[in-house]
Design a protein around this nucleic acid. Structure first.
Lengths: 331, 331
DNA sequence: TTGAAAGCGCTAACAG
DNA sequence: CTGTTAGCGCTTTCAA
């Protein structure tokens, strides 16, 4: 049997209410009694039961984090930002992988609600009406991280993916390239679409007619970067510049190019996206879009705490700054 | 106000107990009543409150995972294994980063216990007596993953790090190398010590006198791999083979060697450890020790479920198989 | 500054 | 097969 608040109360000759007060730092306790209670808490090794507390107070100090894949170098960095800030505000994280599968996502949201989380941090591909409906089945704040809700009804923290992709493409264009290729993600997510739009805008602005052959779909993996190069090679000759929607995939592209006997950046320039740690773990080092993953997680969590505390939120949609980092994979 | 089991009972003209039974799949319910109850659950959108359930049943179906750093490519893979199996057994994971800081670890164990987790999955550097004492403040099963407890009192899932390091070193020796260097971790953790011991044993067995200058401490980061090469270069000439205690650090070593104008493996062979995805994301691809991170997490979680269900456990200390994967960074 | 008492929503005997 | 009834350990009025 565990020590309960009742045991402490009895041993300290006070009421449960008083023990509760000292445990929760309520100032309305005479210093003497506080001392006395603290001493017997210490002596008995009393540890408050958070579940009981949660039931009584309707607050669990736990937030749910739904993430596509924690083993991804991108999302694990985001998760770290989330957890650090959560800790700072005394929240714990229930972490679940969704694999960006809608059914999983919906189920996970439900599970989180059953567990009575005080808030949800959601990362995913696409926010559908079903998602929104599911979110609305409970009165719990939700913040999206690196994820868009087209209806703008849910708070979110992102960078401007369209602008970032535009700038990356433009950088390639300014180096004199005629028509950079684009290795995209699956294009099924909103973020993918934005990146694609940015790429297109840069080409349009330079009066370049889009060549669909130069757009290859990948799945963000290293392998798919390798594959993308093969696919582009089938056009007869590799394009002299390739913009890749994620760093890991970009490493695949770099190695694919090198494996085919060509040089980066002399023969083929490669531009990445995210600035994960991988970007400096390759030769030549990868020019890329700097996306502050950790900060996105941290800011999203901070925003969520504001909602959970019912603080006033001035900015529901936060756009964090990004920038271009030029390294050795481009001219 | 939320729908409670009481509301469902009233609307369905049954008792709370019956509703509880159908929610929990208890077979002692007449099919007709079950249907009726299920219908009104559906109609009212009733969602069981896991916190109340946890208080009443003393089971939360939640396990705590204490991990050094979720943003590490190694641990995030482990975490994925943990979560997948947890999901399979209907458990949720509370995930916290410890940064391998003892004080954090002890505090986190306490927090997990406050939250009434049904079990703990612990990953860390060193298990001290304080850890064991802390674990013993609650009657909750604990399993270590990729972490050793020298007293063998806690269940654990590992590979044989000593043997793995021995084999890796031996492989280098058999390629004709006189005295491979060793880039270790901080040597403060038990796993580090085992790797070191394996390295030493291979040298001893080959009657090679250990040269302390050829042992460089790193911190498992890419940067520290780069640094290690610099440090070794100060000896006048780089050794012709380097065994590195982790893949990410090994990439640093490879690039350090290449940046200095030498070739891998012709001038310097490099051997890694872990077989993270990074091993194939470098040129030349990295020869390394295959450690099944995902499986370690998965098996550890599975083991924990056995303890939580009070199933009989035959093997308290699980050693998963490892192997050597020879790629292009060695001759 | 303190205590009494009523729940929070559910499970788990126990009785029928 | 179903209902009654205690709690689970804590917070939170409300009174004193």
């Amino acid at each position: 049997m565990n020590i309960t608040i009742y045991d402490v109360a009895r041993e300290a000759n006070v009421s449960m209410a008083t023990v509760s007060r000292v445990v929760n730092g309520n100032p309305n306790v005479k210093p003497t009694t506080r001392k006395k209670v603290q001493a017997t808490i210490e002596r008995l090794g009393y540890r408050p039961n958070a579940v009981a507390r949660g039931l009584a107070s309707k607050k669990t100090t736990t937030v749910g984090a739904i993430i596509p894949d924690i083993s991804s170098i991108f999302f694990s960095e985001l998760a770290r930002g989330i957890e650090d800030i959560a800790r700072m505000y005394k929240y714990n994280i229930i972490l679940s992988n969704s694999d960006q599968n809608k059914e999983n996502e919906l189920k996970l949201i439900n599970t989180m609600y059953e567990k009575q989380v005080d808030g949800i941090l959601f990362m995913g591909g696409t926010i559908t009406e079903d998602h929104i409906n599911q979110f609305n089945t409970a009165n719990v704040p939700v913040v999206l991280a690196s994820t868009y809700d087209d209806t703008q009804s849910i708070a979110a923290v992102n960078i401007d993916y369209e602008a970032a992709a535009y700038e990356a493409t433009k950088h390639l264009l300014e180096s004199g390239d005629k028509h950079p290729a684009f290795v995209s993600g699956t294009l099924e997510t909103t973020v993918d679409q934005y990146k694609y739009n940015g790429y297109k805008r840069a080409l349009e602005e330079a009066s370049i007619t889009l060549n669909e052959d130069l757009i290859v779909k990948g799945d963000y993996s290293y392998e798919s970067g390798l594959d993308a190069v093969k696919q582009l090679a089938e056009l007869g000759k590799l394009p002299s510049a390739i913009f890749v929607a994620a760093d890991e995939m970009a490493l695949g592209v770099i190695h694919g190019v090198q494996d085919s006997g060509l040089k980066v950046p002399e023969d083929v320039q490669v531009f990445g996206f995210d600035n994960t740690r991988l970007a400096t773990m390759v030769r030549p080092t990868l020019s890329t879009v700097v996306q502050p993953m950790y900060d996105i997680g941290a800011v999203a969590m901070r925003l969520l705490t504001k909602y959970m505390n019912k603080e006033e939120v001035t900015e529901k949609n936060v756009t964090l700054p990004h920038r271009i980092e030029v390294r050795d994979s481009t001219l």
